[in-house]
Amino acid sequence: MRIESNLKWHILLILALFISLMPIVFAVSTSFKELSEAYSNVLGIIPDKPTLSNYLRIFQELPLNKITFNTLVVAATVTIFKVITSVMAAYAFVYFDFKGKNLLYFILISTIFIPFTMTMIPNYLIISQIGLRNNIMGVILPQLSDATGIFLIRQAMRSIPMPLIEAARLEAAGNFQIMANIVLPLVKPAVISTGIMFFINSWNEYVWPVLILKDTTNYTLPLALQLFVSSEGGTDFCLAMAVSVVTMIIPLGLYLIFQKYIINTFTSSGVKG
């Protein structure tokens, strides 16, 4: 009886998974098909005549090396800065008492809920004014800190038993030593997964770069991808899928490597203040 009802649920779950993961499988498969086969053998997962021509073409038609490099620079810089600023701020919020602490934390965290449209025009003006439009620096600059990061890392730090910190303080360890020797090693999983998420999100970022970047050579991958889509219906899906695969391979790889960390961090993040 119990097994039977579980089986029912499993079938349902597998079906849901199928729906959510199949598009990815189709994308990979189509990217290795010739255009004619893409339309004649739509459901075939393994191409009849596998080809790399789509990949060769996209690297010919676009400065894709440069674009990938741009994406990497943006994602890496944003990630490093977000992690550092988040760890610093979280440390202050957890291990110090100071005037206005709770209010400040509340204000910082509430920025998570501000719609992007409330800030995009003035930010565009700021970036234009300092001459960083059409420059990946302009993409990076407004993203050097992140309230979600402060939130997640603070949660992780709060789960370290206070006596550990007190024991270190009794040993006359200073803030820097406590941070480096005790706190950081213990919140490492949270820092890694938050960092990976920063990297992936920045890698995938579209809305802000599309406002800032104008020239193809300055593009990031998601912007390049859009070049292959034509709203008039003339999209070459084989090329589009090849760029899609190039775009998602890094995030997917990172996710598969750090999956346990990431899932645990978001599962335990909870909302307990």
Binding site: P23, A27, P251
Partner: peptide, 27 residues
């Protein structure tokens, strides 16, 4: 299968929304 399902359901959220848009345009 808890771990498997969690990992698999989370997977699409690491992929660019532009990619997602194109995938669904095709699918």
């Amino acid at each position: 299968g808890r771990g498997f399902y969690k990992g698999a359901f989370f997977l699409p959220s690491v992929i660019s929304l532009v990619v997602g848009s194109i995938l669904y345009l095709w699918v």
